[in-house]
């Protein structure tokens, strides 16, 4: 996950004795977090353990994001989006910050069809677990911008689906319920299977 960044942090610390450059705040915060949750991240774990809902890190990253009102906030917001899946306050604050940046992007959607295609490709790329924090935040920002500002209703609606996926369907989040009918026409809900391990498989016989 953050191993590359963590390594980079370690390396920069090692070199830090010679170069007196100020340490990058994002790298510093990530390194602090990684150290504190080392116990959660056994390399051998098949499924990543759940991170704690509450930690001082959520506030630290949000505070750092709050010092910027542009793209410089994205790494911090991406961290919160990916590390606070059930901390509704922190996650909601990060989404609001993305919404605020998107507000300033109205004119950026002039070539919205092209932007939309790029946005959907980026969303599709996030089909596995964690990615780079900046990439995640950029992808959400792109989708929110199109969902709010695109002239085409189709693009707005489809981009809203991207937003839903990125803010509600990520690892660590409580799955939204599914209600429908089975192949015999009997109504049921995904939540009927609460307390069981459930594999939801979107499939087709083609």
């Amino acid at each position: 996950m953050h191993r590359t960044l963590f390594l980079a942090a370690t390396l920069s610390l090692a070199a830090g004795t010679a170069a007196a450059e100020p340490e990058d705040e994002y790298t510093r915060l990530v390194a602090g977090f990684e150290q504190s949750v080392a116990e959660y991240r056994g390399e051998e774990a098949v499924v990543a353990p759940l991170l704690p809902d509450e930690s001082p890190f959520h506030a630290q990253f949000l505070e750092a994001a709050g010092k910027h009102d542009d793209d410089k906030a994205l790494p911090y917001l991406g961290w919160v989006l990916q590390n606070a899946p059930r901390n509704l306050k922190a996650h909601g604050a990060a989404v609001s910050a993305i919404e605020a940046i998107a507000k300033t992007r109205a004119e950026a959607v002039a070539s919205e069809r092209q932007l939309y295609q790029r946005s959907r490709k980026a969303v599709k790329h996030l089909k596995y677990n964690r990615v780079d924090d900046t990439v995640f935040a950029q992808t959400l920002l792109g989708a929110v911008t199109l969902a709010r500002h695109a002239k085409s209703e189709d693009i707005r609606v489809a981009s809203e689906r991207s937003v839903f996926k990125l803010t509600r369907l990520q690892v660590g989040m409580v799955a939204p319920d599914i209600a429908g009918t089975d192949l015999d026409g009997v109504e049921f809900k995904l939540s009927d299977y609460r307390d069981k391990i459930v594999v939801v498989d979107f499939w087709g016989d083609w």
């Binding site: 499924v47 990543a48 759940l50 059930r86 959907r120 969303v123 599709k124 089909k127 596995y128 677990n129 689906r161 991207s162 839903f164 996926k165 369907l169 990520q170 690892v171 660590g172 989040m173 409580v174 799955a175 939204p176 599914i178 429908g180 995904l190 939540s191 609460r194 307390d195 069981k196 391990i197 459930v198 594999v199 939801v200 498989d201 979107f202 499939w203 087709g204």
Partner: peptide, 28 residues
Amino acid sequence: GPLSLEWDVMGWPTIYFIDGKGIIRERN
């Protein structure tokens, strides 16, 4: 259809692993 649209499924199969508390733990 409505269910795959709601979950914004972009490829088949798309798979989610959900634990007993209803939390998504893995995908695909």
